[in-house]
Write a protein that binds this DNA or RNA. Structure first.
Length: 582
RNA sequence: UGUCCGAUGGUGUAAUGGUAACACAGCGCCCUUUGGAGGCGUUAUUCAUGGUUCGAAUCCAUGUCGGACAGCCA
């Protein structure tokens, strides 16, 4: 465990909430030598944005108060866990805290994350200690009997007939449980507390159960495994955790957390548990069980499907760690179970990408446009700004020619009022290039639009005599001859309703149009697109290369994921138009 | 009808006995070679009732509504 204190950051704009206030108070009182938090996922699925909230809280507190936060696998149930999940958790956590709180990450001497299973020997000894004090006993009740004896929330339970076994017998039986002498489910180790307690978790809770299952970390060493309640508080204690922060559903378990540590008469200070409300986000589901269902039933392509709220999915979609952290920052920490509007996430993503993304021109749904007064075969180089938000991003040159593609949605033959784009006889600015006027609309025999014929004001480009002319609309374009094709994956929300899991089958609300795949025409510079770069396709949205893209082969294939659309006040005013999807 | 927890604009949060504020969303205007970004403005809030107090979102009482808990899951 790492013990060197981290220097508090210079002047980080730290959020404030009831947990941080408590921590600040404890720091002021010098209650602990150092603040220690932990993020304790069970490796039984991939991490999602709800975990990101918890990671930002736990690492954020360590970061702000000069402490350390341990990543700890809460791996006490080998029947549900897998090494694949361990690996993904390590990747996701490191990605999310990189460059921000990675210096707060507590690591074992072997530079590995922590595992509750590392403490199985110690936890076993603590169980023995409890037995010796007469505070735990081996119970032979079957699962069904156990349930019957437990009572109900409004009805007390009954003492197990095995509750008053002699200490020596308990010791012997527990050792034989460990030795594998009994089949699964035949015996448990239970704490001796109070079967009449109004808190069900204090009704002689199970501490150990028998599971003849190999563990992804400890192999075949154990056939008994501690329950969450027993392992968690002790793991916290062993690691020197001061603030054990978890979600609201563990509130009822806190008396048991405290009971175990107090009855073991451990040297102080003891860790304490604090609870906050988990994240619920609109238009998605957040439970690992439901996410796993979507993955297992191939409703999505995998845990990292860009439509999923998993950290790996968001990353693949193009969301940056910084955007996720800013989102978490704006969330706040309370004990109220609310549903956060996805617009808050979307805002954090756009704010981040607007600052960092280089602009490019790409046409998603092309229609050909001919500049009739521009010479055939001529190519002109025009200067384009890479990022108007960041002058240091520089400029690039883009090729202009007689035949172009423009967005199909940027032309309407019978435009509604306030349509600022191209229309018959109308003028529009081609971004970074000329003002053009639409002279002729060409259609095929079936009446489908095939081509637009326009004339350009050849003095209107940047630096030209009429460059200052005001036209209402500006549209994007690419040179037809030089454009490169790219597969573009247009993602939309996975569900059609704000709370898919509020009632009934959540899968009934899956959005059938959550993914549309198209071939776009891109400006040639996109051929050199970098895997980690974010691009804004001007007037369209933010895009990033997908991991499926083939970049270094003989026939490179560009594949872009749409991270998020640009805000579009026109689409909002004209709901029936609807460009690509939304 | 048990125990614990909670309730502030549409949404999420702040105000820690002293002018109810911030962000997102919405709406309007300005600006714009992105209908983006940005700027300015604006709509809208303390669950209810009673009490304590000069003064209550905040403290107390009662009620209402919501959430969590009866896995050998975490």
């Amino acid at each position: 465990m790492s013990l060197e204190p981290n220097a508090p950051p210079a002047a980080a704009p730290a959020p404030s909430d009831f947990i941080r206030e408590l921590v600040a108070q404890h720091v002021a009182e010098h209650r602990y030598p150092q603040i220690q938090t932990r993020f304790p996922p069970e490796p039984n699925g991939y991490l999602h944005i709800g975990h990101a909230k918890s990671i930002c809280l736990n690492f954020g507190i360590a970061h702000e108060f000069g402490g350390v936060c341990n990543l700890r696998m809460d791996d006490t149930n080998p029947t549900k866990e897998d090494i694949e999940y361990v690996d993904s958790i390590i990747t996701d956590v490191n990605w999310l805290i990189a460059g921000w709180a990675d210096h707060c990450l507590g690591l074992t001497p072997a530079k590995a994350p922590f595992y509750a299973s590392d403490y199985f020997d110690q936890i076993y000894e603590y169980a023995v200690a409890l037995i010796k004090q007469g505070k735990a006993f081996v119970c032979d009740l079957s699962p069904a009997d156990m349930e019957a004896y437990r009572g109900a929330p409004d009805r007390p339970g009954k003492d197990s007939p095995f509750r008053n076994r002699r200490m020596e017998e308990n010791l012997d039986l527990f050792a034989r449980m460990r030795n594998g002498e009994f089949p699964d489910g035949t015996r448990t180790l239970r704490a001796k507390i109070d079967m009449a307690s109004s808190n069900i978790w204090l009704r002689d809770p199970i501490l150990y159960r028998i599971r003849h299952t190999e563990h992804h970390q400890t192999g075949a060493k154990w056939c008994i495994y501690p329950m969450y309640d027993f392992a968690h508080c002790l793991s916290d204690y062993i690691e020197g955790i001061t603030h054990s922060i978890c979600t609201l559903e563990f509130e009822v378990h806190r008396p048991l957390y405290d009971w175990i540590l107090q009855n073991l008469a451990l040297p102080r200070p003891l860790p304490h548990q604090y609870e906050f409300a988990r994240l619920s986000l609109g238009y998605t589901v957040m439970s690992k069980r439901k996410l796993m269902q979507l993955v297992d039933e191939n409703r999505v392509t995998g845990w990292d499907d860009p439509r999923l709220p998993t950290i790996s999915g968001l990353r693949r979609r193009g969301v940056t760690a910084e955007a996720l952290r800013n989102f978490a920052y704006h969330l706040g920490i309370t004990k109220y179970n609310g549903v956060t509007d996805v617009a808050v996430l979307e805002h954090a993503i756009r704010e981040d990408l607007n600052r960092r993304a280089h602009r490019r021109l790409a046409v998603l749904k092309p229609i050909k446009l001919i500049i009739t007064n521009f010479p055939e075969g001529k190519t002109e180089e025009l200067e384009a700004v890479n990022n108007p938000e960041d002058e240091s991003a520089g400029k690039r040159r883009i090729a202009f020619s007689r035949e172009l593609y423009i967005e199909r949605d940027d032309f309407q033959e019978l435009p509604p009022p306030k349509f600022f784009r191209l229309k018959p006889g109308g003028e529009v600015r081609l971004k970074y290039a000329y003002i053009i006027k639409c002279d002729e609309v060409v259609k095929d025999a079936a009446g489908n639009l095939t081509e637009l014929r326009c004339t350009a004001d050849l003095e209107s480009k940047t630096g030209g005599a009429t460059a200052g002319r005001k036209v209402k609309g500006t549209i994007h374009w690419v040179s037809a001859a030089l454009a490169v094709d790219a597969e573009v994956r247009l993602y939309d929300r996975l569900f059609t309703v704000p709370e898919p899991d509020s009632e009934g089958d959540f899968k009934a609300h899956l959005n059938p149009r959550s993914l549309e795949i198209i071939t776009a025409k891109c400006e040639p510079s996109l051929q050199a697109a970098k895997p980690d770069a974010r691009y804004q396709f001007e007037r369209i949205g933010y895009f990033t290369l997908d991991i499926d893209a083939q970049l270094s082969t003989k026939n490179p294939q560009l594949i872009f994921n749409r991270t998020i659309t640009l805000k579009d006040t026109w689409a909002k005013a004209m709901p029936k138009q609807g460009a690509c999807s939304r």
